[in-house]
């Protein structure tokens, strides 16, 4: 017994060393342990508050560029409103004859949030927003900025949430060519924050350079048709039966400031449908 104790004391530094190295390796390799604990992410209270304070100071620097893109988006929206108004007045006449009363409520709601910490230089980038569980944010919700999609909520603290950035090599997004039904998957491959790759587009897809890539709407995360990027060119693909496109991302990830988190009203309903078979079996 004494020998064992002596042994442990003598080599204690190696035990401590091994323990810390193993703990680090678990954090490094096992994403699940990490994602389940809010405390070790930037969504925890202390980290969130410090980033929040800092963001109040540095938030002013990007105001000019953000203002410009907001004005552009605003003009675009105004155009859409005008178009829709004229369409509505035409439809209203038609609707008077109809027996069916429309009960369509908007399916998606938005929660505005500020980005308080943002990274683009890692292989796996995340950013932190100043809205959390108490604001109705849950993991799995989509996040967009004024230009297009930027990420998916990953961990929610009470007041802060961590979002998996689109610039994360582990995350894929379901997208399609605008105006068609050719579905592919968007993946970021690193280093350049303005370039992404859309894979698994069927070979018979008709496309041209400059086409817009939008979300497919095949999930509860993003509604259909949110812009993602512009097709730059076709690149070599590992699988001969699919196209791979190099895409210029629409959102400016280095200057994220205000984003909106998308809430799907039907999320729980769709999720319960997806698990229905499993439960009944």
């Amino acid at each position: 017994m004494r020998n064992i104790l002596n042994f442990i004391f003598r080599y204690s530094k190696w035990f401590v060393f091994t323990f810390y190295v193993l703990t680090s390796c678990i954090l490094l390799v096992d994403n699940n342990v990490y994602q389940q604990s809010v405390y070790l992410t930037s969504a925890n209270g202390l980290t969130g508050n410090i980033y929040g304070l800092w963001a109040q100071v540095t938030g002013y620097f990007h105001l000019k560029t953000i203002n410009e893109s907001l004005q552009a988006a605003n003009a675009d929206l105004q155009n859409q409103v005008l178009n829709l108004k004229s369409q509505m007045s035409e439809l209203r006449i038609a609707k008077d004859d109809s027996l069916i009363e429309s009960k369509n409520l908007p399916r998606f709601g938005y929660v505005a949030a500020a980005v308080i910490n943002n990274n683009t230089r890692h292989p796996r980038n995340y950013f932190t927003i100043n809205r959390g569980r108490l604001d109705g944010i849950e993991p799995g919700m989509g996040v967009v900025d004024q230009n297009g999609i930027v990420g998916i909520v990953n961990v929610s603290g009470d007041h802060m949430s961590r979002v998996i950035s689109l610039l994360n090599e582990t995350q894929r997004f379901s997208v399609k060519l605008k105006g068609s039904s050719f579905i592919g998957s968007l993946n970021w491959k690193g280093r350049d924050a303005t370039i992404g790759y859309v894979e698994e587009i069927p070979r018979h897809a008709v496309y041209k350079t400059g086409d817009t890539i939008v979300t497919s709407g095949y999930s509860t995360t993003f509604p259909e048709g949110i812009p993602v990027g512009i097709v730059l060119n076709r690149v070599h693909s590992d699988d001969d039966s699919f196209f791979t496109f190099k895409v210029r991302l629409i959102s400016d990830f280095k200057a994220l400031s205000t984003v909106r988190v998308i809430k799907d009203v039907y999320k729980s309903e769709i999720d319960s449908l997806a698990t229905f078979d499993i439960k009944t079996e």
Binding site: Y20, T23, L28, T41, N119
Partner: peptide, 24 residues
């Protein structure tokens, strides 16, 4: 020293969302 190093790395990791990188 090891304990000090591990926890300072872990703190930076928590802020930067780079699990395990700096602590290791």
């Amino acid at each position: 020293l090891l304990t000090w190093a591990f926890f300072s790395g872990l703190t930076v990791d928590a802020f930067a969302d780079t699990p395990g990188v700096n602590s290791l």
